[in-house]
């Protein structure tokens, strides 16, 4: 019995070792991209084999975006990172110097080959008539969003609301802050991650509106209909740009720089863009976007660089300790 168990364990170890024979890439990504990158990996492996005759295996790692970035900083040997926000890749550049700080200029579309945006989920029939960001500040309404301190997605939510307010109140700082404070007052639960918030809203039926990534809302749309919720697209929202980058130092050590870069460039090819769109990310390629127009309703967007001067700036001003998020927390 014990010997059988031992040989089972040994066999497991050996097979785990065997999988590394060919060129291997490790793609360290954030949570809900599994299906997306699984499809990309297959397509890319085929394309790479056709082009070079080499076979390539891509391993995946998923987790919260900030936590994944921290793992790379602390030595997780990622050849490429595909995270939820540029700030997390900036952190890898700043804290571990594994890639140059101008990494974002190296690939097309500022290294963000696909995008998404922030939308609302409301109960079927929209009983509280929530149509735009202004409604979120209505007294008595309950707004569900994860904690921006622990969730990258929640930071997009927060900045989307802030950006809308900046435009609507024409830069009147006091009014913008009043608006954000009123929205924060309506948040009854701060889950630590996006999935927790979805669960709170959909399964526990708490709250009137959930702020969510469009791709995640679409991804779970089949279950959503069953759960009695629907998507509302606000008048304007933030362009959520999940970035990708080769981790130079690690790739150089593994001798995978060329294949890693080809892998990320593949995301911008028509084939890669098509896979992104089928996995509910908005493609950059206009031709592909046109084909999926029905899936992605038009929405006016602003970018983090235009509205906030980039992630470093936004993080410092809003989310670091003592930032606007801490200041505008209601006294409970």
């Amino acid at each position: 019995m014990r010997r059988a168990l031992f040989s089972l364990v040994l066999a497991g170890l050996l097979t785990a070792g065997a999988a590394r024979a060919d060129t291997t890439l490790l793609n360290v990504s954030y949570d809900p991209t599994r299906e997306f990158y699984r499809a990309i990996n297959q397509a890319f492996a085929a394309a790479w084999k056709a082009k070079t005759g080499e076979s390539v295996t891509i391993n995946q790692s998923h987790g919260g975006s900030g936590k994944q970035a921290r793992s790379v900083i602390d030595g997780l040997e990622a050849d490429v990172v595909t995270l939820a926000l540029a700030y997390d890749i900036d952190a890898i550049a700043d804290h571990a110097r594994l890639l140059p700080s101008d990494w974002q200029a190296r690939l097309p579309d500022r290294s963000t080959p696909y995008t998404s945006t922030i939308v609302f989920l409301v109960r079927t029939g929209n009983p509280k008539r929530i149509t735009d960001w202004g409604d979120l500040a209505r007294p008595g309404l309950q707004v569900i969003t994860p904690n921006p301190k622990t969730s990258g997605g929640a930071r997009w939510n927060y900045l989307a609301a802030w950006g809308w307010a900046e435009r609507t109140y024409r830069g009147d700082a006091a009014k913008v802050r009043d608006y954000i404070a009123a929205v924060l007052k309506n948040v009854p639960v701060f889950d630590s991650g996006a999935r927790g918030s979805t669960n709170t809203f959909v399964q526990r039926r708490i709250g009137d509106v959930l702020l969510a990534w469009e791709n995640e809302a679409l991804l779970s749309s089949r279950e959503l209909a069953e759960a009695g919720v629907e998507i509302v697209v606000p008048s304007v929202s933030i362009l959520a740009e999940p970035p990708v980058a080769v981790v130079d130092t690690v790739a150089a050590r593994h001798g995978t720089t060329a294949v890693a870069e080809a892998y990320l460039r593949f995301l911008s090819t028509p084939e890669g863009q098509d896979i992104a769109a089928r996995n509910f990310y908005r493609p950059r390629d206009p031709a592909v976007a046109k084909r999926f127009a029905a899936q992605f309703p038009p929405v006016a967007t602003f970018t983090i660089d235009d509205a906030f001067g980039g992630w470093r700036q936004a993080q410092k001003l809003h989310f670091d300790d003592g930032g606007s998020f801490d200041q505008l927390q209601p006294k409970r």
Binding site: A16, A19, L26, V28, N59, Q60, S61, G63, S71
Partner: peptide, 11 residues
């Protein structure tokens, strides 16, 4: 374990 694992699928 979550902190030290790296979450590499299947590995």
């Amino acid at each position: 374990v979550s902190v030290v694992s790296g979450h590499i699928r299947g590995m």
